[in-house]
């Protein structure tokens, strides 16, 4: 498996650390309530198809990235820096 780091280019999967769904970018406010925090931390969809998830280019440039990929076909559709996803709301 290979992932397209927006900084380093296509790299082997072993350089990356997998985190989880990109919903983790949407951190609730401190007083958002127990349900919002429970959702944020624990509840995840398990989509058959397109999904966006977070990877850390740990053995590379150190960037956190958002990868869009298809869980059925294993196709990797794109990746953007997490800082940009957060700043602009852009999708990979």
């Amino acid at each position: 498996m290979r992932l397209p780091c927006p900084l380093c280019g296509d790299r082997d999967r072993r350089e990356f650390y997998y985190q989880g769904h990109a919903v983790m970018l949407e951190r609730p406010l401190r007083d958002a309530g127990a349900n919002a925090w429970d959702d944020y931390l624990h509840n995840r969809d398990n989509p058959a198809g397109e999904t966006r998830d977070l990877w850390h280019h740990e053995a590379g440039c150190g960037a956190w990235i958002v990868v869009t990929r298809n869980t059925v076909t294993h196709e990797v559709l794109g990746a953007i820096l997490a800082e940009n996803a957060k700043k602009t709301g852009a999708q990979a």
Partner: peptide, 13 residues
């Protein structure tokens, strides 16, 4: 270190 990268890049850019 990974956590600080995470917070600075993804949560608090």
């Amino acid at each position: 270190m990974k956590h600080l990268d995470w917070v600075s890049q993804a949560l608090r850019p």
